[in-house]
């Protein structure tokens, strides 16, 4: 249940979250692009920002598909089938590649498998995604610290 609660908080949501509004883009028409690779006559007027992470709509809960896979991976991990759990999490990541929790779970299993360098990179990947909540962020940081200590220690 804890896993599911975490999931609701930090997933990036299904693929069709509302498109982020972009003001003033798309102004350059196909016609105006005919003079390729030449300098613009005037400085660009509207290099507007893309929406920042903080402004993106907060994501809804994870899709039932990913919830099902995540609990499947948990069962496999609990049963000691670590490779199977990895495969299940990878399957979930194909559906929601921006789900920070999935990357985190994968990092944990890789740590259990003593693949420390990979575990640290996976945890860093988890933290590279927006919507990772603060407890997940801290869990990733701690995992990275432990993994680095293990690789440094031999």
């Amino acid at each position: 249940m804890l896993v599911l609660a975490l999931l609701a908080g930090c997933s990036s949501g299904p693929r069709r979250s509302a498109p982020a509004p972009v003001v003033g883009s798309g102004a350059a028409s196909a016609e105006s692009a005919s003079g390729v690779q030449t300098a613009p006559a005037t400085p660009l007027p509207d290099f507007r920002p893309l929406p920042r992470a903080a402004e993106q709509p907060s994501a809804p809960a994870s899709s039932p598909a990913v919830v099902a896979l995540l609990s499947g991976a948990e069962r496999q991990r609990a049963g000691g089938e670590l490779d199977a759990a990895v495969a299940t999490l990878e399957r979930a990541l194909r559906i929601e590649p921006r789900n920070a929790l999935l990357w985190h779970r994968l990092a944990l299993i890789r740590f259990e498998q003593r693949r420390y360098a990979l575990a640290a990179d996976l945890a860093a990947r988890s933290n590279s995604l927006p919507h990772a909540n603060s407890s997940l962020r801290e869990a990733n940081r701690s995992l990275i610290r432990r993994a680095r200590a293990m690789t440094a220690g031999g």
Binding site: V22, S25, G26, A30, V36, P40, L50
Partner: peptide
């Protein structure tokens, strides 16, 4: 690289892809 597509050498894509796709690329 998004600016390449939005206003630079790749701006022909603007007519093909929706602006919210925010594609990035290089010729």
């Amino acid at each position: 690289l998004q600016e390449v597509v939005r206003s630079g050498t790749g701006r022909r894509l603007a007519g093909v892809l929706p602006s919210e796709r925010q594609a990035a690329g290089k010729t």
